[in-house]
Design a protein around this nucleic acid. Structure first.
Lengths: 336, 336
DNA sequence: GAAACCGCTGAAAAGGATTACATGAGGCTT
DNA sequence: AAGCCTCATGTAATCCTTTTCAGCGGTTTC
């Protein structure tokens, strides 16, 4: 059996309360404190967190629920959240929902059983609407995907602005038939789609949107299909990192040159974005700021539970690379 | 205050023991079971995991300690481990050690306080040697980096074979001055370095190894330095994913063509490996198998604590891409 | 006919910590 | 010198479950 607070107390010849106070910064005379610390060192005592949590009713734990940790944005987010959490003396429970409402519900239940302090959550579209009804027994901060009514705190990218930036950029380099490729599950995709429609309309451009599963393979298949038609687009905007990779793969498969034949752009800047093809033009999300802001909102919420919900929008940053370089040569002197 | 087992018992007009038994599959008559289940549904009762753990002395939690979740291999590993864990009804606590012995020690302490069932751990080189002394109060399975003496269960890639495969492959396509670039912290790098020395020696090739921090920037800087010398290598093997990216960046920066001027290869197959430059030749690690095997070893260890330590080695798979394509044309008809 | 046994149930102990409250010593005021 | 604070300490209640143990009425075994 592991050593408990009682053993330490006995060895130091003090009461268990005193030992507890040594940990909790209660008032303890230097003399006793030293005796207790010696006993702790000698026995190798470690407080039992379950007992501590049970009694104190503070779990010091936050839940992080995302679709899939392997998605680059969520990978980066999780790292930030964990850093912030451990810095504040809290632990993180990580949940992969796989965009499944069922798994999401299961994990929300688990969060409740863990009596978490709060949850940072990128909810699936289906769940997010149901959300207003359930009164979750812990505060949540939505990330990446905002809630519908401003009922919860949230921190999201300004998707409208971001996608407009991309559309305008492609327009600037002379593209006019820009198609959009969006995920078919997240509400982020919905926002970006609306932004795409607005931006193309305001520039007097045609628009055509496709919705597929948010992974590289589905994106590649869809683009292959789109480009098998006679009137090929000259620009593609993908609403996520992995989908942009799928687009790049399709271009290579089709033997189309980027950016000469088709300019492509998308979201999230990664270590490898610069090296794929001629370099991928992307909107970089301030993922560090997003994570930290989410934690800030959560801690604020704990302090003032009744304060009105806050929705924070952060701006992305356009990073221009080869995949949308202007192709001056081609216009002046057509090849062959 | 949240609803407790007492409230449920009261409402169902049974004892708390009976309610507990309904959860724990103890013997309960159908009639009472139904009453209890109705009461649970009516009250929305969720068992308190802290109390449950305290009493039952089972945390149903495993720790996963890796250097950095953002490192692609660890990202993939974490997903597998979590899937397996949740499938077995357990939770996962994720720790990023940043290759720091101090953080590692801190997290090991935390694992103890959490009374984890076991830990899956990619230890830092410094710590791994100290490890024999401390008798950790929970079983650990080492991943990615094996322990020194066979004192702990471990599952690793067959690094010796993997790097030999890469060296032989580069030799086959006619490269003779192959340098190796290795991380300067993990024991994996040490293994791969030894394999590199053995493989080059057995082929009668010269060898030259460089050790840098395991990230893209450091790798890029080092390679730029190496290639500023007069006698340039014609092949580079990088011992990790991110370092290979650094190498690719350096090549682009130097204006060197891959594979014509320099063939490059490394580790870990990712969604984007195919799209960086002409496609990156890599050793693909069976990360799914590694994660599942680690869990299997852990569960076996829990069943038979006294069984001798097992070390499982899995083979990587060579994936040949453009970065090491044979350049037939050049030899026959020199350019210009 | 006593003893053993059955399947189900409830009372109560136990698990390891925190914390409200009580206590006692010492120092200060008046 | 009586009264009152302050401060450090100990006692015991408490957090919510699981689990041991005993008890129940009724059958089976010897």
């Amino acid at each position: 059996m592991a050593v408990s607070i009682k053993d330490v107390a006995q060895r130091a010849n003090v009461s268990v309360a005193t030992v507890s106070r040594v940990f909790g910064n209660g008032p303890v005379s230097p003399e006793l404190r030293e005796r207790v610390e010696k006993a702790i060192a000698a026995t190798g005592y470690r407080p039992n967190l379950s007992a501590r949590r049970l009694r104190s009713q503070h779990s010091q734990t936050i839940g992080l629920m995302v679709a899939d940790i392997r998605s680059p944005f969520f990978t980066a987010l999780s790292r930030v959240v964990e850093d912030e959490a451990y810095h504040a003396g809290m632990r993180v429970i990580l949940c992969n929902t796989d965009e499944s409402a069922e798994r999401e519900a299961m994990y929300l239940g688990l969060m409740e059983e863990e009596r978490v302090t709060g949850v940072i959550w990128a909810p699936t579209r289906g769940t997010i609407e149901r959300l207003a009804d359930d009164d979750l027994p812990f505060p949540v901060v939505l990330v990446d995907r905002g809630g519908p009514v401003g009922r919860h705190d949230s921190v999201v990218l300004d998707n409208h602005q971001a996608i407009a930036t991309l559309v305008r950029h492609l327009h600037t380099i002379g593209r006019s038939r820009i198609v959009g490729l969006f995920g078919n599950v997240s509400s982020t995709a919905v926002d970006r789609h609306l932004g795409y429609l607005a931006a193309t309309a305001s520039l007097g451009l045609s628009s055509e949107a496709f919705f597929v599963a948010p992974n590289a393979e589905a994106a590649e298949r869809e683009i292959l299909k789109v480009f098998s038609r006679p009137d090929r687009p000259d620009g593609v905007i993908a609403s996520s990192n992995l989908m942009l990779l799928g687009v790049a793969k399709a271009m290579r498969r089709l033997g189309l040159r980027t950016p000469e034949d088709v300019a492509i752009a998308g979201f999230d800047n990664e270590t490898w974005s610069e090296l794929v093809g001629p370099g991928l033009t992307v909107i970089e999300q301030p993922v560090g700021d997003i994570g930290r802001m989410a934690m800030t909102l959560l801690f604020d919420r704990l302090k003032t539970p009744k304060a009105p919900a806050r929705k924070v929008m952060l701006s992305g940053k356009l990073i221009v690379r080869g995949s949308t370089a202007p192709v001056t040569g081609l216009v002046d002197e057509p090849v062959e």
